[in-house]
């Protein structure tokens, strides 16, 4: 190997090494390796939710981290935080240090400084950490509402007591309305009230129950001779009759309540709705019948 080549290789190795070292040094510098750091000591009565490496924030920006946690002779927790020199200016003698515990997410140490012109905090001073807890805050906010709720409950209790009292106001009102509404007040359901007959209401409910039961069946139970489809047809036909029964009953109610114009209006509206339902179900039945002709020839013969 000639001397010229040796020099070249040497130069290459040196330059490369220099570049690598320079890069590493630059990286270390940019990451604050050579920055001077201040260690501040804080105290807390409880170490709950405090961990080593926890971020220290100022105005929501990370300016340092918790270095160590240790107990002193009095059993008070001492928290050492490491703050780089360029951020130490934010920490003043009137700065407050609080541990913020959000409902969701990890805890963090927050520094707030009201007056940046106040003297810098001496590393020898040990300020105490204030606990800020979202849950507690929430409870604080809820407390007035709870108080209101308490009042409401008290009122309800008073009302129910009144209800229980046969001579109470509520009972008096109820007895008056009972007299006014007569039989209607004794009816169990709205349908029953509208139809005036418990039988009609019951039959409608029965039909609805049948439909519910039917829906619970699986598809393979729907088809076939013993399947649910013929049953659907039967039920639908049954519903028509029951709804028609209501229709007739409603007609009577409308006639009876002709004087009370307001209720008549409502009942007429209800009746129109029922009429529409009856018609649509009727159509549905005939459509089903068309699709599924019954085993018997649908021809009226002499019995």
């Amino acid at each position: 190997m000639s001397k010229k080549v040796e020099v070249k290789v040497g130069l290459f190795v040196v330059i490369t090494s220099v570049l690598i070292i320079a890069s590493v040094l630059y990286l270390a510098y940019s990451k604050g390796f050579f920055t001077r750091e201040y260690i501040y000591t804080l105290s807390s009565k409880s170490g709950e939710d405090l961990t080593e490496g926890m971020p220290v924030l100022f105005s929501g920006y990370k300016i340092g981290r918790v270095e160590t946690l240790e107990l002193n002779d009095q059993g008070i927790l001492l928290i050492k935080i490491r703050i780089p020199e360029q951020h130490s200016k934010w920490i003043r003698s009137d700065s407050t240090f609080s541990l913020y515990k959000p409902l969701i997410g990890s805890s963090r140490l927050i520094i707030a400084t009201e007056n940046l012109n106040s003297p810098a905090l001496s590393p020898k001073t040990i300020p105490e950490i204030v606990m800020v807890n979202d849950i507690n805050e929430s409870i604080k906010k809820v407390q007035p509402t709870l108080a209101k709720l308490d009042k409401v409950v008290t009122n309800i209790e008073r009302i129910t007591a009144n209800l229980a009292d046969p001579q109470g106001n509520v009972n008096k009102i109820l007895s008056h309305s009972e007299k006014l509404t007569g039989n209607l007040a004794k009816k169990d359901t709205l349908i029953e009230m509208a139809t005036g007959t418990p039988e009609s209401a019951q039959s409608v409910n029965e039909s609805l129950k049948k439909i519910r039961d039917l829906l619970a069946k699986t598809d393979d139970q729907v088809y076939g001779n013993d399947g649910a489809l013929p049953l659907v047809r039967k039920i639908l036909k049954d519903i028509i009759v029951k709804l028609e029964k209501i229709n007739t009953a409603l007609d009577n109610v409308v006639k009876i309540s002709a004087d009370a114009s307001d209720s008549t209006k409502d009942l007429k509206l209800l009746r129109t709705e029922i009429d529409t339902t009856v018609n649509s179900i009727d159509k549905l039945v005939s459509d089903i019948n068309k699709i599924l002709p019954s085993k018997k020839e649908p021809e009226i013969k002499l019995p």
Partner: peptide, 19 residues
Amino acid sequence: SKQIPDWTNASFNQLENYK
């Protein structure tokens, strides 16, 4: 499949239900 008129089907079923 012979097309059965609506009224035939309906009247037959209604009469069966009547009975």
